[in-house]
Design a protein around this nucleic acid. Sequence first.
RNA 1: GGGGAAUUAGCUCAGUUGGCUAGAGCGAUUGCAUGGCAUGCAAUAGGUCAGGGGUUCGACUCCCCUAUUCUCCA
Length: 882
Amino acid sequence: MKNIHMDAQTIRQKFLDFFRSKGHNIIPSSPMVIKDDPSLMFTNAGMNQFKDIFLGTAPFRHKRIANSQKCLRVSGKHNDLEEVGHDCYHHTMFEMLGNWSFGDYFKKEAIGWAWELLTDEFRIPKDRIYTTVFEGSSEEGISMDGEAFDHWKQYLDEDRILTGSKKDNFWEMGDTGPCGPCSEIHVDLRPDQERNKVNGRDLVNKGHPQVIEIWNLVFIQYNRRISGELERLPKKHVDTGMGFERLCMVLQQKTSSYDTDIFQPVIRQISIMCDKKYGDNEQVDVAMRVISDHLRAIAFAVADGQLPSNTRAGYVIRRILRRAVRYYFTYLEQKQPLIFKLVPSLVASMGHAFPELQAQQQFIEKVIREEELSFLRTLESGIKRLDQIIAEAGRGKSAMINGLLAFELYDTYGFPLDLTELILKEHNLTVNRSEFDEGMKQQRQRSKTDAAVDTGDWIMVNDDAEGQQFIGYDHTSADVLITRYRKVKSKEGEFFHLVFDRTPFYAESGGQVGDTGYIVRGNDRISVINTIKEHNLTVHLTKKLPADIAAQLRAQVDVKARMDTARNHSATHLLHYALRKVLGNHVEQKGSLVHPDYLRFDFSHFQKLGEDEIRKVEILVNEMIRNNHDVHIREDSFENARKAGAMALFGEKYGDRVRMVQFGDSIELCGGTHIENTCQIGYFKIISESSIAAGIRRIEAITGSGYERFVEKQETVMKELNLLLGNPPDLIKAVSNLLDEKNQLQKKITLHNQQQINATKDTLLRQVKKVGDINLIYGETPMLDSAEAVKDTAYQLRNQVENLCLILGSLINEKPLLTIMIADNLVKEKNLNASDIVKIAAKEIQGGGGGQPFYATAGGKTPGGLSKAVEKAVETVFGKKV
RNA sequence: GGGGAAUUAGCUCAGUUGGCUAGAGCGAUUGCAUGGCAUGCAAUAGGUCAGGGGUUCGACUCCCCUAUUCUCCA
């Protein structure tokens, strides 16, 4: 097939230009990491950022939109992770080109434009294109999508239009939500010779690597309810997605997306670094593909603010990186961090389309390098543990290792199973897979049952035709109507989610915690425990429902908490500004928590802040507070806000209209609630500075009444200390004197104890009784007051007296203690056992004990029996009274 | 959110069913050997066994709580 060669950059641009010419608005990709949707961690399809529009919980500003969206498919319904690298077209991170219609054009235009773009603009030969339409489903009560079929018929022969089942041609977002039939476009890339042998029609959707789907046109016309039934949507939408990497592969006439100019520069660099050629050895090729793919996923995730961690989204990123490390570790024989060195190459090829990569290049490299190092360490300790297991197996002469051991290695030490198997193979060993799987199954079961959340259907109450309105910037209480509610059961208990027609409650977002407060009608008062945002809806959490669900209620925000939160939020802006002033403009916000009691701010910076830097930041912030800056809040276009110098955050989703919050020179885009003038913050104090990951520092600080409580606490400590020490003129000196004194006394006690021991030893040495060749010492130790001292005495005598048999009765804290020490040679020659003897003698003090053959102790309850116990021990040793 | 593990000398780690009053290697200090160095030999210092409770005659070891870190599942 012949067409003009285009590089990736041009292809992307042509797509966008084409749809712009068809009246579409071109918008930027939304972040890959998702923040306000509990059912999804990453953007896994182009339509994610429009989900709220499809669900009807957000308004739309444009009827036609097109963009290139960065996506990640690594978990949940779409999980391609394990495929990546082994074939030539699966990817974790990929770009999805898409055009959308919101209640505007439908099947006719969507199909017509797709055909025009592919055949006119991109010059894909028409005889290589096949399309599919939904065949219908009796189970759902839907007939075949004849509409789509008829439109296609205008462009291709009927035998090139196939019908497909629910699996391939009915698209659903999740278990519930908007859905509808879809129509796929497939391209046959095989050489003519093969095309003549087998009809391409028979290979569509059959997993053939060169007959591939490149574009899916989804016609959203239904909503799936929890009950499973479909309801027709009042407004129909178009949602299309074309895999950018696959499109490039087609247009550049490659048989693998890894051969396109998207991946080749990186693969060439890996090849140079490892001194191995791409294309010579399948395992090496797989490894290089894995690394070049995963590099993109990780770099983009980090650029969007998602750091590798051990929970949720961060954990997924960590696992992707580890998979890459694991491949170069084994197949490219590299034992040093490598992926971070590829970042410049990635930035060179994608930085212009995604400026967030370029701006944070150094930071991304640092984070990746640290992660690589940490996993290489994990591998090292895992190999150590595995060596032990191999050694034990060698003794057992079994060729199969217990699967639970391999599971332990995986579960506890993070050591991958395939690597375990590979290393074992070198020792002619295998793993019992079914045992391993069993361990895995149990682990899954445990997690699932504990994390189960049961979310009910929304129940609509009052008609919310007006949509929901947030009035919390200006009001802290309002009369509201409940528009919908549902019940949610989880391990923590049963909650209700309430949505109002308008609300003064601020939902958790942008790091600021949700408002608390109550709703009330007459005597019916219900606490609002928290407020969260879900699909653009403000959801109020309560423990019960109002008696009259449809009636008007008074909603009241906890004003004290709201004001304290506002103080901390405004202070966060000042802190951000001050950090950039003091440390430099490389400081980027990486996370933030604004709580009524304190604030937490994470930011990129490569070293610990010095005492002087912290002071400088505090001084700067407090100066701004005292300068009485009024807050200026206004809405403007994103474009204008940037021009005005507002700081926007990477990984944050901004609409066309943004809210600018300004205090003096600090301007940020922010939807949070703020105080009116900086002086309301009162005072700002940093209470801790720490590191949370490579290249990221965390500052915790307090303001206003939080600072009052802090000072109060410090004062109380000082007062009480002074009181305890009798108001000394110099508190520090007083404490240090006290410590010195304590040390001296400690030394004196040690010395005194040693003297007591020596004195005891002297007394006992005078009482040595020769019984045969045994030097018997027995008696009591009135001078010793600790078990430790008795032990010392016994051990010292052991070194001084040969053929020793020592039997001591002591009174420690009014409790009797019996000690027996027997010389090593006597233990052997005379078959004496201190442990046995002490057990017999301890009966006299109603106690028990034991120890080793040469040394044993016993404690008891009756001090009166001590002397009898000593005698009993002597009798036991010699079989008679001595 | 749930499970598993780790925390012992400056560093890397041993430490047996609870008991030989806590060990090794590297590093540090000192001395010796050598013309000097690489180095070798010897000695010494260095420990709240993460912190707090409990069980026991006796806890680095067993149990509970807390902190930090690692790891797996969701």
